[in-house]
Design a protein around this nucleic acid. Structure first.
Lengths: 342, 342
DNA sequence: TGACGCCATGAGATCGATCTCATGGCGTTC
DNA sequence: GAACGCCATGAGATCGATCTCATGGCGTCA
């Protein structure tokens, strides 16, 4: 493939001049510039970014790691990040960790070798993450996405998970629910899920209600109804359930209806994330929306700021409660027998 | 950052020897190897892939372009591709085109400059794609994903869209449906959608039924029920609808139920793609499953074969009809008044 | 007309690896 | 003990750009 040397030769100039035709045409004689460009076109010259990257020590590439692309929340975030990065002239190397710390380490090592200009990571466990310990010693700018900010080490982009879930909980309480549970994926894999559970607990306690332990599902994407059944039965059963993400909520609604229950009649269900699909379902999903498009934009902007040497302290992004049809007011028939106590 | 020169210096060997410690340790004296590795560790040496790429003229990077990550079918395929690529030692540069030919061109040009070893593209319109015309003149191996194979130029990985939709259509016909329609996103943006419509038409005609024109929705991800209403009304209204993708089907089901209709009671709905979520909904989605995991694996394997210089001719991947609850037998009450005609 | 300075261009080093080929040491064989 | 060959290592070129600094030409001004 044609390189600058052959272009320079054909145009009858030096490599330096040929290079200048692309990087700073304004200080070439117009005639010279024209000759070089013509030679480039004739040879089908295409600048080699690898050589540029080596020489300039900047790759204009960002490394992105998410747990999985099977969850639309990550896919939608990635979509936004890609657009923002492209607009700024950056490319994305995309990887999935499957919540596996070993894979996280291998991926990050690989990306550092690739000399990405910056990393945007969503790790399973920000506070015990081996990969973050390692990165603290490296000079490559690193941003956490979705993970709660850990120590003062890495800036983090995301909503305030605790406050967001507290809002969702209060929403249910305000609609008359008293026996509210929460389900989530494997706890060990997600610091977010834990924070969300804390928000739930806080809001419950603030209302004088008893928070329950998180009901753990084997996966992040699909409920096993059997694990929830015990909590549903009888007059003392739950009347509302919060889910740590939308996929669980959607799956839960499906399972409930398949088992003959109605939503929100028999159980109100709230999700978390606000994936696009949730709006279109019936019943449409009541959920806490993380602003995905803004997410991607802010993540990329913040990372680029880090790369430029700034020390941005991004604020938590605002979450929005989206009222759907899956969570409703407590039916009169299920009013708790407990005495009213303001 | 430490480079091979400094490692060599510290270990008291030449650069060549230091390099050999990593690439072919077996022909170094064990003692020498140990000294180099120790020096590398002491300096925190990390091989620079950019330099390797320049020298070896192989980047071990694949360029992936999909229309959008908002549609889980692409996200899930990407997930599978990423895993397959990683297993083979390759990284993925991921981009989204938004079905925009201009963006497609810019993206491909960018990736060629990056000297990716191969390209896996899902283009909007394979047969009038400017980007493919350009690529035909380039030497970078290129694979189409989802797009129907175009001429003998580029191998293509995907299901047989026409046959798959014909199967789905026959499935509905076998369950007694006669007035079957089809909806899709903007036709101009998807050669797949067109092929699927052809499959539908074929199957309808083969059964002596009248195929209808595709009812076009403004987006690929969401139905506008108003556009369908005219076809639904009255005794002569449709009893079943095929959708060009699952998102449309899901959205359609939601809208129908919101408007007081039942699925499949009032209308049977079939999707296409088989995204994971469809299983968990209620009613669960009847759909044509494209084997996503296999998709990614086959796409990467085929592309790697191309890179190695082979000329693979991948077969269409097998599709599977997944029976869900959203498509059922035609209710007796809606039997067509037309005479029985075997 | 000579000195000065700007402007366009070229020569050569550099980024950090890999790869080929040369070389010196040492063991083997007759 | 001389010739041979293998093995470990080193020297230098190379991939394809960028960047600094040197240089020659030309216009300007005194």
């Amino acid at each position: 493939m044609a390189n600058l040397i052959s272009v320079a030769k054909l145009a009858g100039v030096s490599r330096a001049t040929a290079a200048r035709a692309f990087s700073s045409p304004e200080n070439l004689r117009p005639e010279t510039h024209r000759r070089v460009m013509e030679a480039a076109r004739a040879l089908g010259f295409r600048p080699n970014k690898v050589a540029q990257q080596l020489r300039t020590r900047a790759t204009l590439m960002l490394g992105v790691m998410v747990p999985s692309l099977d969850n639309p929340v990550f896919a939608e975030q990635l979509q936004a990040m890609e657009e923002a990065a492209r607009a700024a002239g950056y490319s994305l190397i995309v990887t999935t960790s499957g919540y596996d710390p070993g894979r996280e380490e291998a991926i990050v090592e690989e990306m550092l070798r690739q000399r990405v200009d910056g990393l945007a990571l969503t790790v399973a466990e920000a506070d015990h993450s081996a990969v973050l310990v390692k990165l603290r010693r490296e000079s490559t700018p690193c941003l956490l996405v979705h993970n709660p900010p850990v120590a003062p080490c890495f800036p983090s982009v995301g909503v305030d998970n605790r406050a967001a879930m507290a809002d969702a909980t209060r929403y249910l309480i305000a609609r008359g629910h008293r026996r509210i549970g929460m389900i989530g994926g494997p706890l060990l894999q997600s610091d977010r899920a834990r924070l969300r559970h804390e928000g739930y607990r806080e809001a419950m306690e603030a209302a004088g209600l008893t928070p329950l332990a998180l009901i753990e599902m084997p996966r992040h994407t699909q409920v096993a109804l059997s694990r929830l059944e015990p909590a549903l039965g009888g007059a003392e059963g739950l009347t509302a359930v919060l889910c740590t993400n939308d996929l669980l909520a959607i799956s839960l609604i499906g399972e409930l209806r398949r088992s003959g229950r109605s939503v929100p009649g028999d159980l109100s269900v709230m999700g978390f994330d606000g994936i696009e699909l949730g709006r279109h379902l019936y019943p449409s999903l009541s959920t806490v929306v993380q602003p995905r498009a803004e997410f991607g934009r802010v993540a990329v902007d913040t990372l680029l700021a880090l790369i430029r040497g700034a020390t941005p302290q991004p604020l938590p992004l605002p979450h929005v409660l989206r009222e759907g049809e899956s969570a409703g007011a407590l039916p009169a028939s299920r009013q708790a027998p407990e005495p009213y106590d303001p």
